[in-house]
Design a protein around this nucleic acid. Structure first.
Lengths: 220, 220
DNA sequence: CTAATATTCTAACGATTATTGGATTGATGT
DNA sequence: ACATCAATCCAATAATCGTTAGAATATTAG
Protein backbone atom coordinates (compact mmCIF):
# COMPACT_ATOMS: atom_id res chain seq x y z
CA UNK A 1 0.00 0.00 0.00
CA UNK A 2 1.51 3.30 -1.12
CA UNK A 3 1.67 6.43 0.95
CA UNK A 4 -1.06 8.89 0.22
CA UNK A 5 -0.45 11.42 -2.52
CA UNK A 6 -0.70 14.23 -0.01
CA UNK A 7 2.07 12.85 2.18
CA UNK A 8 4.46 13.05 -0.74
CA UNK A 9 3.96 16.80 -0.96
CA UNK A 10 4.66 17.48 2.69
CA UNK A 11 7.63 15.16 2.48
CA UNK A 12 9.17 17.33 -0.22
CA UNK A 13 8.64 20.53 1.74
CA UNK A 14 10.10 18.82 4.79
CA UNK A 15 13.30 18.32 2.80
CA UNK A 16 13.73 22.08 2.88
CA UNK A 17 12.82 22.19 6.55
CA UNK A 18 15.42 19.53 7.25
CA UNK A 19 18.04 21.61 5.50
CA UNK A 20 17.17 24.42 7.90
CA UNK A 21 17.41 22.24 11.01
CA UNK A 22 21.16 22.40 11.62
CA UNK A 23 22.91 25.42 13.20
CA UNK A 24 25.96 25.09 10.99
CA UNK A 25 23.87 24.88 7.86
CA UNK A 26 22.07 28.05 8.84
CA UNK A 27 25.39 29.78 9.42
CA UNK A 28 26.49 28.65 5.97
CA UNK A 29 23.26 29.92 4.47
CA UNK A 30 23.81 33.32 6.03
CA UNK A 31 27.34 33.41 4.67
CA UNK A 32 26.08 32.52 1.21
CA UNK A 33 23.53 35.30 1.50
CA UNK A 34 26.55 37.64 1.41
CA UNK A 35 27.59 36.29 -1.99
CA UNK A 36 29.22 33.34 -3.71
CA UNK A 37 31.89 31.53 -1.66
CA UNK A 38 34.16 28.52 -1.95
CA UNK A 39 33.96 25.52 0.35
CA UNK A 40 37.27 26.41 1.94
CA UNK A 41 36.17 29.94 2.70
CA UNK A 42 32.87 28.76 4.15
CA UNK A 43 34.64 26.20 6.32
CA UNK A 44 37.00 28.85 7.67
CA UNK A 45 34.26 31.38 8.37
CA UNK A 46 32.05 28.82 10.05
CA UNK A 47 35.00 27.38 11.96
CA UNK A 48 34.45 23.81 10.86
CA UNK A 49 36.39 21.15 8.97
CA UNK A 50 36.17 21.35 5.20
CA UNK A 51 34.85 17.82 5.02
CA UNK A 52 32.03 18.74 7.31
CA UNK A 53 31.30 21.90 5.35
CA UNK A 54 31.17 19.81 2.21
CA UNK A 55 28.73 17.40 3.83
CA UNK A 56 26.46 20.23 4.92
CA UNK A 57 26.63 21.81 1.50
CA UNK A 58 25.60 18.50 0.02
CA UNK A 59 22.44 18.53 2.12
CA UNK A 60 21.72 22.12 1.14
CA UNK A 61 22.25 21.25 -2.49
CA UNK A 62 19.98 18.22 -2.35
CA UNK A 63 17.25 20.44 -0.96
CA UNK A 64 17.96 22.83 -3.84
CA UNK A 65 18.63 25.79 -1.58
CA UNK A 66 22.13 26.24 -3.02
CA UNK A 67 23.87 25.66 -6.33
CA UNK A 68 27.52 25.09 -7.10
CA UNK A 69 29.86 25.76 -9.97
CA UNK A 70 33.44 24.79 -10.55
CA UNK A 71 35.91 27.63 -10.81
CA UNK A 72 39.39 26.34 -11.50
CA UNK A 73 40.30 24.04 -8.72
CA UNK A 74 37.78 25.60 -6.36
CA UNK A 75 34.08 24.97 -6.21
CA UNK A 76 31.93 28.01 -5.56
CA UNK A 77 28.54 27.80 -3.89
CA UNK A 78 25.73 30.32 -4.03
CA UNK A 79 22.08 30.54 -2.96
CA UNK A 80 19.79 29.27 -5.69
CA UNK A 81 17.60 32.36 -5.53
CA UNK A 82 16.59 35.57 -3.80
CA UNK A 83 13.75 33.72 -2.16
CA UNK A 84 16.20 31.51 -0.26
CA UNK A 85 17.73 34.55 1.39
CA UNK A 86 14.30 35.85 2.33
CA UNK A 87 13.33 32.44 3.69
CA UNK A 88 16.38 32.55 5.97
CA UNK A 89 15.40 36.06 6.98
CA UNK A 90 11.84 35.06 7.71
CA UNK A 91 13.06 32.09 9.73
CA UNK A 92 15.30 34.06 12.04
CA UNK A 93 12.73 36.80 12.45
CA UNK A 94 10.09 34.31 13.54
CA UNK A 95 12.58 32.58 15.83
CA UNK A 96 13.57 35.90 17.39
CA UNK A 97 9.95 36.84 17.81
CA UNK A 98 8.94 33.70 19.69
CA UNK A 99 11.99 32.17 21.36
CA UNK A 100 12.68 33.93 24.62
CA UNK A 101 16.00 32.10 24.85
CA UNK A 102 17.10 33.72 21.62
CA UNK A 103 15.99 37.15 22.74
CA UNK A 104 18.01 36.76 25.91
CA UNK A 105 21.08 35.61 24.01
CA UNK A 106 20.74 38.55 21.64
CA UNK A 107 20.36 41.02 24.48
CA UNK A 108 23.87 40.18 25.56
CA UNK A 109 25.18 41.15 22.16
CA UNK A 110 22.95 43.74 20.68
CA UNK A 111 22.35 47.11 22.20
CA UNK A 112 20.21 49.86 20.80
CA UNK A 113 17.52 49.75 18.15
CA UNK A 114 18.02 46.24 16.87
CA UNK A 115 14.67 45.78 15.23
CA UNK A 116 14.20 48.05 12.28
CA UNK A 117 10.74 49.00 11.11
CA UNK A 118 9.65 50.06 7.68
CA UNK A 119 9.84 53.70 8.76
CA UNK A 120 13.26 53.58 10.37
CA UNK A 121 14.63 51.84 7.28
CA UNK A 122 13.22 54.49 4.97
CA UNK A 123 14.46 57.26 7.21
CA UNK A 124 17.94 55.75 7.23
CA UNK A 125 17.87 55.42 3.46
CA UNK A 126 16.93 59.07 3.26
CA UNK A 127 19.69 60.26 5.56
CA UNK A 128 22.19 58.07 3.73
CA UNK A 129 21.19 59.58 0.41
CA UNK A 130 21.47 63.12 1.69
CA UNK A 131 24.81 62.37 3.33
CA UNK A 132 23.44 63.09 6.78
CA UNK A 133 24.79 59.78 8.04
CA UNK A 134 27.57 57.54 6.81
CA UNK A 135 26.41 53.98 6.29
CA UNK A 136 29.41 51.77 6.91
CA UNK A 137 29.77 48.21 5.61
CA UNK A 138 32.33 46.41 7.78
CA UNK A 139 32.21 43.01 6.06
CA UNK A 140 35.13 41.69 4.00
CA UNK A 141 35.37 43.62 0.78
CA UNK A 142 34.27 40.82 -1.59
CA UNK A 143 30.96 40.70 0.20
CA UNK A 144 30.54 44.44 -0.15
CA UNK A 145 31.29 44.17 -3.86
CA UNK A 146 28.73 41.39 -4.28
CA UNK A 147 25.92 43.48 -2.81
CA UNK A 148 25.61 46.28 -0.27
CA UNK A 149 23.15 48.79 1.15
CA UNK A 150 22.54 51.94 -0.89
CA UNK A 151 25.16 54.66 -0.41
CA UNK A 152 27.18 52.42 1.90
CA UNK A 153 30.96 52.79 2.19
CA UNK A 154 33.21 49.77 2.66
CA UNK A 155 35.81 49.49 5.40
CA UNK A 156 36.30 45.87 6.49
CA UNK A 157 36.49 45.49 10.27
CA UNK A 158 40.08 44.24 10.08
CA UNK A 159 41.20 47.46 8.41
CA UNK A 160 38.99 49.84 10.33
CA UNK A 161 41.49 51.02 12.94
CA UNK A 162 44.10 51.88 10.33
CA UNK A 163 41.62 53.64 8.08
CA UNK A 164 39.83 55.80 10.61
CA UNK A 165 40.94 58.95 8.82
CA UNK A 166 38.52 58.17 6.00
CA UNK A 167 35.58 58.73 8.31
CA UNK A 168 34.15 62.14 9.24
CA UNK A 169 34.02 62.99 12.92
CA UNK A 170 31.07 65.31 12.68
CA UNK A 171 28.60 62.88 11.13
CA UNK A 172 26.70 59.97 12.58
CA UNK A 173 28.05 56.61 11.47
CA UNK A 174 25.73 53.62 11.12
CA UNK A 175 27.53 50.30 10.81
CA UNK A 176 26.09 47.03 9.53
CA UNK A 177 27.43 43.60 8.61
CA UNK A 178 25.87 40.25 7.72
CA UNK A 179 22.72 40.39 9.77
CA UNK A 180 21.43 40.39 13.32
CA UNK A 181 23.67 37.48 14.41
CA UNK A 182 26.86 38.95 13.03
CA UNK A 183 29.18 40.48 15.61
CA UNK A 184 31.36 42.57 13.31
CA UNK A 185 29.24 45.71 13.34
CA UNK A 186 29.09 45.64 17.14
CA UNK A 187 32.88 45.46 17.32
CA UNK A 188 33.16 48.26 14.82
CA UNK A 189 30.86 50.47 16.88
CA UNK A 190 32.85 49.77 20.05
CA UNK A 191 36.06 50.69 18.25
CA UNK A 192 34.62 53.85 16.71
CA UNK A 193 33.17 55.04 19.99
CA UNK A 194 36.48 54.71 21.81
CA UNK A 195 37.99 56.94 19.15
CA UNK A 196 35.33 59.56 19.67
CA UNK A 197 33.09 58.95 16.69
CA UNK A 198 29.32 58.97 16.98
CA UNK A 199 28.61 55.42 15.85
CA UNK A 200 25.68 53.02 16.10
CA UNK A 201 24.71 49.78 14.42
CA UNK A 202 21.71 48.18 12.78
CA UNK A 203 20.82 44.50 12.74
CA UNK A 204 20.07 44.42 9.03
CA UNK A 205 22.30 42.79 6.46
CA UNK A 206 21.66 42.91 2.73
CA UNK A 207 19.26 39.96 2.95
CA UNK A 208 17.14 41.57 5.66
CA UNK A 209 17.20 44.89 3.84
CA UNK A 210 16.14 43.31 0.57
CA UNK A 211 13.45 41.21 2.22
CA UNK A 212 11.98 44.41 3.61
CA UNK A 213 11.46 45.42 -0.01
CA UNK A 214 14.21 48.00 -0.15
CA UNK A 215 16.81 48.24 -2.91
CA UNK A 216 20.39 47.01 -2.65
CA UNK A 217 23.31 47.83 -4.90
CA UNK A 218 24.66 44.74 -6.66
CA UNK A 219 27.77 43.82 -8.57
CA UNK A 220 26.52 44.23 -12.13
CA UNK B 1 35.61 25.27 26.74
CA UNK B 2 32.23 26.75 25.92
CA UNK B 3 30.70 26.97 22.52
CA UNK B 4 31.03 30.35 20.89
CA UNK B 5 28.34 32.92 21.56
CA UNK B 6 27.44 32.95 17.92
CA UNK B 7 26.76 29.22 17.78
CA UNK B 8 24.13 29.63 20.47
CA UNK B 9 22.15 31.95 18.24
CA UNK B 10 22.09 29.65 15.24
CA UNK B 11 21.25 26.79 17.55
CA UNK B 12 18.12 28.57 18.65
CA UNK B 13 17.01 29.32 15.12
CA UNK B 14 17.73 25.71 14.20
CA UNK B 15 15.15 24.69 16.80
CA UNK B 16 12.52 26.28 14.58
CA UNK B 17 14.04 24.66 11.49
CA UNK B 18 13.93 21.30 13.23
CA UNK B 19 10.26 21.79 13.95
CA UNK B 20 9.74 22.28 10.20
CA UNK B 21 11.68 19.16 9.24
CA UNK B 22 8.93 16.58 9.60
CA UNK B 23 6.16 16.07 7.00
CA UNK B 24 3.54 15.36 9.62
CA UNK B 25 4.45 18.44 11.62
CA UNK B 26 4.08 20.56 8.50
CA UNK B 27 0.69 19.01 7.85
CA UNK B 28 -0.30 19.85 11.42
CA UNK B 29 0.95 23.41 10.98
CA UNK B 30 -1.16 23.83 7.88
CA UNK B 31 -4.20 22.51 9.73
CA UNK B 32 -3.57 24.94 12.58
CA UNK B 33 -3.31 27.74 10.05
CA UNK B 34 -7.03 27.10 9.46
CA UNK B 35 -7.80 27.82 13.10
CA UNK B 36 -7.64 26.37 16.59
CA UNK B 37 -8.00 22.58 16.80
CA UNK B 38 -7.92 19.84 19.40
CA UNK B 39 -5.32 17.08 19.42
CA UNK B 40 -7.94 14.51 18.52
CA UNK B 41 -9.12 16.51 15.54
CA UNK B 42 -5.57 17.07 14.31
CA UNK B 43 -4.76 13.38 14.67
CA UNK B 44 -7.83 12.43 12.64
CA UNK B 45 -7.19 14.97 9.91
CA UNK B 46 -3.53 14.03 9.61
CA UNK B 47 -4.36 10.32 9.79
CA UNK B 48 -2.02 9.54 12.65
CA UNK B 49 -2.27 8.17 16.16
CA UNK B 50 -3.17 10.65 18.85
CA UNK B 51 -0.03 9.81 20.79
CA UNK B 52 2.07 10.65 17.79
CA UNK B 53 0.15 13.85 17.17
CA UNK B 54 0.75 14.78 20.78
CA UNK B 55 4.47 14.12 20.41
CA UNK B 56 4.67 16.28 17.28
CA UNK B 57 2.72 19.04 18.97
CA UNK B 58 5.15 18.89 21.85
CA UNK B 59 8.02 19.60 19.46
CA UNK B 60 6.09 22.44 17.84
CA UNK B 61 5.32 23.86 21.26
CA UNK B 62 8.93 23.66 22.42
CA UNK B 63 9.95 25.64 19.35
CA UNK B 64 7.21 28.12 20.26
CA UNK B 65 5.46 27.83 16.92
CA UNK B 66 2.21 26.77 18.59
CA UNK B 67 0.45 27.39 21.88
CA UNK B 68 -2.14 25.32 23.73
CA UNK B 69 -5.00 25.93 26.09
CA UNK B 70 -7.21 23.60 27.99
CA UNK B 71 -10.88 23.61 27.09
CA UNK B 72 -12.84 21.25 29.31
CA UNK B 73 -11.34 17.84 28.79
CA UNK B 74 -9.90 18.78 25.42
CA UNK B 75 -6.71 20.67 24.76
CA UNK B 76 -6.83 23.13 21.89
CA UNK B 77 -3.74 24.13 19.91
CA UNK B 78 -3.24 27.21 17.79
CA UNK B 79 -0.40 28.92 15.96
CA UNK B 80 1.42 31.35 18.22
CA UNK B 81 1.19 34.16 15.68
CA UNK B 82 0.42 35.37 12.18
CA UNK B 83 4.08 35.18 11.34
CA UNK B 84 4.09 31.42 11.86
CA UNK B 85 1.46 31.02 9.16
CA UNK B 86 3.46 33.21 6.82
CA UNK B 87 6.64 31.26 7.59
CA UNK B 88 4.85 28.07 6.56
CA UNK B 89 3.66 29.84 3.42
CA UNK B 90 7.14 31.07 2.60
CA UNK B 91 8.55 27.61 3.17
CA UNK B 92 6.23 25.83 0.78
CA UNK B 93 6.55 28.54 -1.82
CA UNK B 94 10.35 28.24 -1.80
CA UNK B 95 10.11 24.46 -1.87
CA UNK B 96 7.71 24.57 -4.82
CA UNK B 97 9.95 27.04 -6.60
CA UNK B 98 13.10 24.93 -6.38
CA UNK B 99 12.19 21.27 -5.95
CA UNK B 100 11.38 19.75 -9.29
CA UNK B 101 10.09 16.66 -7.55
CA UNK B 102 7.49 18.76 -5.81
CA UNK B 103 6.47 20.50 -9.01
CA UNK B 104 5.98 17.12 -10.68
CA UNK B 105 3.93 15.81 -7.78
CA UNK B 106 1.78 18.94 -7.86
CA UNK B 107 1.27 18.70 -11.61
CA UNK B 108 -0.56 15.45 -11.04
CA UNK B 109 -2.99 17.18 -8.72
CA UNK B 110 -3.29 20.77 -9.70
CA UNK B 111 -4.55 21.96 -13.03
CA UNK B 112 -4.99 25.51 -14.17
CA UNK B 113 -3.57 28.72 -12.79
CA UNK B 114 -2.10 27.42 -9.58
CA UNK B 115 0.28 30.24 -8.90
CA UNK B 116 -1.49 33.45 -8.12
CA UNK B 117 0.23 36.76 -8.62
CA UNK B 118 -0.47 40.05 -6.92
CA UNK B 119 -2.56 41.12 -9.92
CA UNK B 120 -4.66 37.97 -10.20
CA UNK B 121 -5.37 38.11 -6.48
CA UNK B 122 -6.52 41.71 -6.67
CA UNK B 123 -8.59 41.01 -9.74
CA UNK B 124 -10.25 38.09 -8.00
CA UNK B 125 -10.93 40.25 -4.95
CA UNK B 126 -12.54 42.79 -7.23
CA UNK B 127 -14.76 40.30 -9.01
CA UNK B 128 -15.72 38.75 -5.68
CA UNK B 129 -16.73 42.14 -4.32
CA UNK B 130 -18.81 42.98 -7.35
CA UNK B 131 -20.45 39.58 -7.32
CA UNK B 132 -19.01 38.69 -10.71
CA UNK B 133 -17.67 35.44 -9.34
CA UNK B 134 -18.68 33.31 -6.39
CA UNK B 135 -15.75 32.53 -4.13
CA UNK B 136 -16.48 29.17 -2.54
CA UNK B 137 -14.89 27.94 0.67
CA UNK B 138 -15.18 24.14 0.75
CA UNK B 139 -13.41 23.54 4.07
CA UNK B 140 -15.29 22.30 7.15
CA UNK B 141 -17.46 25.08 8.50
CA UNK B 142 -15.50 25.75 11.72
CA UNK B 143 -12.49 26.67 9.61
CA UNK B 144 -14.57 29.04 7.51
CA UNK B 145 -15.89 30.66 10.67
CA UNK B 146 -12.39 31.10 12.04
CA UNK B 147 -11.20 32.98 8.97
CA UNK B 148 -12.06 33.07 5.28
CA UNK B 149 -11.40 35.00 2.09
CA UNK B 150 -13.39 38.20 1.59
CA UNK B 151 -16.92 37.68 0.24
CA UNK B 152 -16.46 33.91 0.31
CA UNK B 153 -19.42 31.59 0.80
CA UNK B 154 -19.14 28.39 2.81
CA UNK B 155 -20.26 25.00 1.55
CA UNK B 156 -18.12 22.20 3.00
CA UNK B 157 -17.09 19.62 0.44
CA UNK B 158 -19.03 16.88 2.21
CA UNK B 159 -22.28 18.83 1.79
CA UNK B 160 -21.63 20.25 -1.63
CA UNK B 161 -23.58 17.73 -3.70
CA UNK B 162 -26.71 18.12 -1.60
CA UNK B 163 -26.50 21.91 -1.55
CA UNK B 164 -25.86 22.59 -5.22
CA UNK B 165 -29.07 24.57 -5.47
CA UNK B 166 -27.48 27.38 -3.47
CA UNK B 167 -25.04 28.09 -6.28
CA UNK B 168 -25.83 30.12 -9.40
CA UNK B 169 -25.34 28.40 -12.73
CA UNK B 170 -24.63 31.57 -14.67
CA UNK B 171 -21.67 32.78 -12.63
CA UNK B 172 -18.09 31.62 -12.43
CA UNK B 173 -17.32 29.73 -9.25
CA UNK B 174 -13.83 29.85 -7.74
CA UNK B 175 -13.20 27.24 -5.08
CA UNK B 176 -10.46 27.24 -2.47
CA UNK B 177 -9.56 25.24 0.60
CA UNK B 178 -6.56 25.03 2.92
CA UNK B 179 -3.76 25.81 0.51
CA UNK B 180 -1.93 24.45 -2.51
CA UNK B 181 -1.55 20.96 -1.02
CA UNK B 182 -5.17 20.57 -0.09
CA UNK B 183 -7.23 18.35 -2.37
CA UNK B 184 -10.70 19.46 -1.38
CA UNK B 185 -11.04 22.33 -3.80
CA UNK B 186 -9.95 20.10 -6.69
CA UNK B 187 -12.63 17.57 -5.78
CA UNK B 188 -15.18 20.34 -5.51
CA UNK B 189 -14.30 21.62 -8.98
CA UNK B 190 -14.58 18.15 -10.46
CA UNK B 191 -17.99 17.71 -8.88
CA UNK B 192 -19.24 21.13 -9.95
CA UNK B 193 -18.08 20.65 -13.50
CA UNK B 194 -19.91 17.35 -13.88
CA UNK B 195 -23.09 19.16 -12.84
CA UNK B 196 -22.55 21.80 -15.47
CA UNK B 197 -21.24 24.67 -13.39
CA UNK B 198 -18.35 26.84 -14.54
CA UNK B 199 -15.91 26.16 -11.72
CA UNK B 200 -12.19 26.55 -11.19
CA UNK B 201 -9.88 26.54 -8.19
CA UNK B 202 -7.07 28.56 -6.71
CA UNK B 203 -4.13 27.28 -4.67
CA UNK B 204 -4.45 29.92 -1.99
CA UNK B 205 -5.77 29.29 1.47
CA UNK B 206 -6.28 31.99 4.06
CA UNK B 207 -2.62 31.85 5.10
CA UNK B 208 -1.33 32.35 1.54
CA UNK B 209 -3.89 35.08 0.93
CA UNK B 210 -2.93 36.92 4.12
CA UNK B 211 0.79 36.51 3.46
CA UNK B 212 0.26 38.22 0.12
CA UNK B 213 -0.87 41.22 2.14
CA UNK B 214 -4.56 40.90 1.37
CA UNK B 215 -7.34 41.09 3.95
CA UNK B 216 -9.20 38.10 5.35
CA UNK B 217 -12.45 38.06 7.30
CA UNK B 218 -11.99 36.72 10.83
CA UNK B 219 -14.25 35.48 13.58
CA UNK B 220 -14.43 38.57 15.73
C1' DC C 1 53.61 12.50 -16.46
C1' DT C 2 53.88 13.66 -11.57
C1' DA C 3 52.89 16.43 -7.54
C1' DA C 4 49.91 19.40 -5.12
C1' DT C 5 45.45 21.20 -3.92
C1' DA C 6 40.36 21.54 -3.35
C1' DT C 7 36.70 18.85 -2.90
C1' DT C 8 33.91 14.80 -2.73
C1' DC C 9 32.93 9.94 -1.62
C1' DT C 10 32.75 5.92 1.56
C1' DA C 11 32.58 3.90 5.84
C1' DA C 12 31.93 4.12 10.66
C1' DC C 13 30.56 5.65 15.28
C1' DG C 14 27.83 7.96 18.65
C1' DA C 15 23.95 11.01 19.27
C1' DT C 16 19.10 12.24 17.98
C1' DT C 17 14.64 11.39 16.38
C1' DA C 18 10.26 9.01 15.05
C1' DT C 19 7.15 5.84 16.45
C1' DT C 20 4.79 2.51 19.39
C1' DG C 21 2.87 0.34 23.78
C1' DG C 22 1.82 0.86 28.60
C1' DA C 23 1.07 3.57 32.61
C1' DT C 24 -0.47 8.27 34.36
C1' DT C 25 -2.80 12.80 34.82
C1' DG C 26 -6.86 15.93 34.80
C1' DA C 27 -11.37 16.98 33.93
C1' DT C 28 -16.20 15.43 33.39
C1' DG C 29 -20.46 12.94 34.37
C1' DT C 30 -23.00 9.49 37.03
C1' DA D 1 -16.13 7.87 44.87
C1' DC D 2 -15.88 5.66 40.33
C1' DA D 3 -15.67 5.19 35.47
C1' DT D 4 -14.68 7.55 31.25
C1' DC D 5 -12.33 10.21 28.04
C1' DA D 6 -8.63 13.37 26.12
C1' DA D 7 -4.11 13.97 26.40
C1' DT D 8 0.49 13.47 28.21
C1' DC D 9 4.39 11.05 30.22
C1' DC D 10 7.70 7.25 30.19
C1' DA D 11 10.36 3.78 28.36
C1' DA D 12 12.14 1.02 24.31
C1' DT D 13 13.34 0.13 19.64
C1' DA D 14 14.44 1.17 14.81
C1' DA D 15 15.77 4.72 11.69
C1' DT D 16 18.23 8.88 10.72
C1' DC D 17 21.75 12.43 11.30
C1' DG D 18 26.21 14.76 12.57
C1' DT D 19 30.80 14.14 12.65
C1' DT D 20 35.34 12.32 11.85
C1' DA D 21 38.92 9.55 9.37
C1' DG D 22 40.74 7.58 5.07
C1' DA D 23 40.49 6.81 0.16
C1' DA D 24 39.26 8.67 -4.36
C1' DT D 25 38.50 12.64 -8.14
C1' DA D 26 39.35 16.48 -10.71
C1' DT D 27 41.93 20.38 -11.82
C1' DT D 28 46.10 23.08 -12.02
C1' DA D 29 51.37 23.71 -11.73
C1' DG D 30 55.76 22.13 -12.86
Amino acid sequence: MSRALKDLLYEQVARVGKALSSPKRLEILELLAQGEKTVELLANEAAIDMKLASAHLRVLKESRLVESRRDGRYIAYRLSGEDVASLWTKLHVVATEHLIELQVALDGIVSGPERLTAETRLSLLDKARSGDVVVLDVRPEPEYLSAHLPHARSIPLAELESRLAELPRDKEIVAYCRGPFCLMSAEAVALLNTYGYRASKIGDGVAEWATAGLPVQTEN
